[in-house]
Simulated scan of single mutants.
Amino acid sequence: MSQYKVSQSDTTHGKDGEHHLIKGQQSSMRLWHREEPAGAKPESSNPYETLGYVTEGQMDLTVNGETITLRPGDSYCVPANAPHTYRITETLTAVEVNTPGTDK
């Protein structure tokens, strides 16, 4: 595996439908695909910033108490340490970048 490319066969998969893609020196990228709508995830916070882009489906994202609905073409930001939760309302595909990078 090159440090500049990760092939699909080399990606790792998480328990919640995420595919860990490439990781740089300061950021990491993952692809989320949830086959079916799911209930709300318990509120949490992470020590990294997340930037995302929805390519398919829909979800409600709550960050710092503000709820927004995300649809294809929408992008979003979850600041580091911000309390957040989400609820998938239609089968979802989204790409996220975390800074600093994470394997979660």
Results as ranks from 00 to 15, higher is better:
1 M>Y: 03
1 M>N: 04
3 Q>I: 07
4 Y>V: 11
5 K>S: 12
7 S>L: 13
7 S>H: 11
9 S>E: 12
9 S>Q: 13
9 S>F: 06
10 D>P: 00
10 D>L: 07
11 T>E: 10
11 T>F: 12
12 T>L: 09
12 T>C: 03
12 T>E: 10
17 G>V: 09
18 E>G: 07
19 H>M: 13
20 H>K: 08
25 Q>E: 14
26 Q>E: 15
30 R>H: 09
30 R>A: 06
30 R>M: 13
32 W>H: 09
32 W>D: 01
36 E>C: 00
36 E>D: 05
37 P>R: 04
37 P>E: 04
37 P>N: 08
38 A>H: 08
40 A>L: 05
42 P>T: 08
43 E>S: 15
44 S>C: 05
44 S>A: 09
46 N>V: 06
46 N>G: 00
48 Y>N: 04
48 Y>I: 03
48 Y>V: 07
51 L>N: 14
53 Y>R: 12
54 V>P: 01
55 T>H: 06
57 G>V: 01
57 G>F: 01
59 M>P: 00
59 M>L: 15
59 M>S: 06
60 D>I: 04
61 L>W: 04
61 L>D: 02
61 L>M: 14
61 L>C: 07
62 T>M: 01
62 T>F: 00
63 V>H: 06
64 N>A: 15
65 G>W: 08
66 E>T: 15
66 E>C: 06
66 E>S: 15
66 E>Y: 09
67 T>L: 06
67 T>Y: 10
67 T>E: 11
68 I>G: 10
68 I>P: 00
70 L>R: 02
70 L>C: 10
71 R>C: 11
71 R>G: 13
72 P>L: 10
72 P>N: 11
72 P>C: 11
73 G>I: 13
74 D>I: 13
74 D>W: 12
74 D>L: 14
75 S>E: 13
75 S>N: 15
76 Y>N: 06
78 V>R: 00
78 V>F: 04
78 V>H: 02
79 P>C: 10
79 P>F: 10
79 P>A: 11
79 P>H: 10
80 A>K: 14
80 A>T: 10
82 A>L: 04
82 A>Q: 03
83 P>V: 07
85 T>E: 07
86 Y>I: 02
86 Y>L: 11
86 Y>K: 03
87 R>W: 01
89 T>N: 05
90 E>K: 15
90 E>W: 01
90 E>Q: 14
91 T>P: 05
94 A>V: 02
94 A>Y: 00
94 A>P: 00
96 E>I: 09
97 V>E: 02
99 T>K: 05
100 P>L: 14
100 P>G: 13
100 P>W: 12
101 G>V: 03
101 G>S: 07
101 G>Q: 03
103 D>A: 14
104 K>L: 11
104 K>P: 00
